[in-house]
C-alpha cells in the first residue's frame, strides 16, 4: 500500500513535465497523452518494485521509446498518405483551416506566452538527441548520469548533445 502511495505521488508529479517533453517530440497533444499513458502503465507493471530513486530515469527511458515508436508509426502513415495523394487530383486534399491559415491563438498574443511558444518551437526543431538531453536536464532537472541512463548513452554523449542544444537555441533565439 505504501508502494502504491509513493508511485501515485511520483506519477502525479511527473505527469505534466512528461507530457510537455513528449509533446515537443510528437507535436500533438493526443499523441503525447498516449505516449505518457503507455510509459506510466509500463513503469507501474514492470518496475514499480524498483527503488524509488530509479523511477525517474527508468520512466524517461520508457517514455523515450514510446515517443520513438509513435514517431516511426507517423512516418509510415505519412509515407502512405503521401503515396495515396498522388492519385487524388490537386485541390481536393486540403482541408479548410490548416495550421498555416489558422488565425493566431489569442493567448499567444500575450508576450510571455509568445516567448514560451518560440522557445518550444525551437526546441521541437532540435535533433532528437539534443532535444532529449536539453529537456531532461532543464525540465526534469536530471543530472548528467541520470540523463545518460534515460537516454541509453554515455555521460560524455549527454554533455555533447546538451552543449550543442544550448548553442543552437541561443543562436536561434538570441537572448530569449
Amino acid at each position: 500500500m505504501e508502494y502504491r502511495r509513493e508511485l501515485e505521488s511520483f506519477l502525479r508529479g511527473i505527469a505534466p513535465r512528461a507530457f510537455r517533453i513528449a509533446r515537443l517530440g510528437l507535436r500533438e497533444d493526443q499523441d503525447a497523452l498516449d505516449a505518457v499513458q503507455e510509459a506510466m502503465i509500463k513503469l507501474a507493471r514492470r518496475y514499480g518494485d524498483r527503488p524509488e530513486s530509479e523511477w525517474t530515469p527508468l520512466f524517461y527511458a520508457i517514455l523515450r521509446n514510446c515517443v520513438h515508436d509513435l514517431q516511426r508509426s507517423h512516418r509510415s502513415r505519412n509515407s502512405l498518405v503521401a503515396w495515396l495523394r498522388r492519385f487524388v487530383p490537386p485541390g481536393e486534399t486540403e482541408s479548410p483551416g490548416t495550421d498555416v491559415d489558422a488565425p493566431p491563438d489569442p493567448l499567444e498574443q500575450v508576450d510571455s506566452l509568445q516567448r514560451l511558444s518560440r522557445l518550444e518551437r525551437a526546441v521541437a526543431r532540435l535533433p532528437a538527441r539534443q532535444r532529449e538531453a536539453f529537456l531532461l536536464r532543464n525540465v526534469e532537472d536530471l543530472d548528467v548520469r541520470e540523463t545518460a541512463t534515460a537516454m541509453g548513452c554515455t555521460e560524455g554523449s549527454v554533455k555533447t548533445h546538451y552543449s550543442r542544444a544550448v548553442r543552437a537555441l541561443r543562436e536561434h533565439l538570441g537572448e530569449l
Binding site: 502504491r4 505527469a15 505518457v36 502503465i41 507501474a44 507493471r45 518494485d49
Partner: peptide, 16 residues
C-alpha cells in the same frame, strides 16, 4: 484532468 485519469489507469494495472 486527463493526466490524472492516465495516472489512475496506470495505478490500477496488475503488476507482472
Amino acid at each position: 484532468t486527463k493526466l490524472d485519469r492516465i495516472v489512475e489507469q496506470a495505478l490500477h494495472q496488475p503488476r507482472r
